[in-house]
């Protein structure tokens, strides 16, 4: 018996070590490819963070290559003293929280009836929704609809039209495939009406897909720029991304933000430092949260890849 075990161990051990020459080259290539790709992703990110905490003069002189040169939090101080950034943060936060809640509610309310097999003309309604994924009028007709709905220059424009048909379809598919019809039949026997069924059975049972949708919507809201750009003219309603465009892309940094600076090189360094710090500040909230919710995203892609 002991002999058998030892031979077994032996073979296992040897099979673990045993790689043919081909395999070794293959694994080397695989690991090198992955190392290169990962490095190319992480490098610009580290570079941005390093720049944001380096000395302004080092940034302006182009001395930062990977690790920070010197140390200063001056950029961050400027960012948080910036009124536009504050307004943007506040608005983006409100739009993200309220908008995500509204959109998930809309998605559930819409997906549940479409998942019920006895809904009259169900295919027709599903078709109406999915058709909009394939065909739409374009920018101007949408703009006109929003204008006639009196949504221009209101916070609602940032939260209501963001409802996603794609999310609705995956929610519907999820409800259809994961919640058996027998459940409805049995609770109906017990005198449960449709609203009770939705509230106390469908909602708790579709928590995973709701999480997926909520994450999609939340990231969408936080990063959304187009809607604000097209529909908003009131500066007090602008989300962070619009201010980011002004500062990062158009370089509209007003000189009065740097009144105490003396030389122009310092000014330039300061402006760039501010940009780097701003990139970090604007992206950090999402990048901090996403490792914890990554598995839900993966789940969302899995559900979404189902045909239905």
């Amino acid at each position: 018996m002991a002999n058998v075990q030892s031979t077994y161990k032996c073979t296992r051990k040897s099979s673990k070590i045993k790689h043919s020459k081909d395999d070794l080259t293959y694994y080397t290539i695989v690991y090198i490819t992955i190392a290169i790709l990962t490095f190319s992703v992480i490098y610009p990110i580290i570079y941005i963070v390093s720049c944001s905490i380096s000395l302004p003069s080092a940034v302006a002189a182009g001395k930062v290559v990977l690790f920070p040169v010197g140390f200063s939090l001056e950029g961050y101080k400027r960012v948080f003293a910036y009124e536009r950034v504050y307004i943007g943060f506040r608005n983006s936060f409100i739009y993200t929280v309220v908008g995500t809640f509204l959109n998930v509610a809309m998605t559930m309310i819409c997906a549940y009836p479409l998942a019920r097999k006895k809904l009259p003309h169900r295919n027709f309604f599903t078709f109406l929704f999915s058709f909009t994924m394939l065909f739409n009028g374009g920018m101007i007709p949408t703009y006109l609809v929003m204008r006639d709905l009196r949504l221009l220059n209101t916070p609602w424009i940032m939260m209501l039209p963001t409802f996603g048909v794609y999310n609705m379809i995956i929610t519907r598919t999820y409800i259809q495939t994961n919640i058996p019809d027998e459940l409805l039949e049995s609770v109906q026997m017990d005198g449960c009406n449709d609203i009770q069924y939705f509230w106390s059975f469908i909602l708790p049972l579709s928590k995973p897909v709701m999480a997926v949708c909520a994450l999609q919507y939340a990231v969408g809201h936080w990063n959304s720029y187009f809607n604000a750009f097209i529909y908003l003219t009131n500066k007090n309603l602008f989300p962070l991304q619009v201010f980011l465009r002004e500062i990062l892309v158009l370089s509209q940094i007003s000189p009065e933000d740097f009144v105490d600076e003396e030389t122009s090189i310092q000014l330039q360094g300061m402006a760039d430092l501010l940009k780097y710090a701003l990139i970090v500040v604007a992206t950090a909230p999402i990048l901090c949260v996403y490792p914890f919710v990554q598995k839900y995203f993966v789940k969302g892609i899995m559900i979404g890849s189902l045909k239905g």
């Binding site: 990962t38 992703v41 990063n223 720029y225 991304q241 465009r245 990062l248 990139i279 604007a282 996403y290």
Partner: peptide, 11 residues
């Protein structure tokens, strides 16, 4: 490698 997906277009 999933990280850049969450960076907004503007950023």
């Amino acid at each position: 490698t999933y990280m850049p997906h969450f960076i907004s277009t503007v950023v």
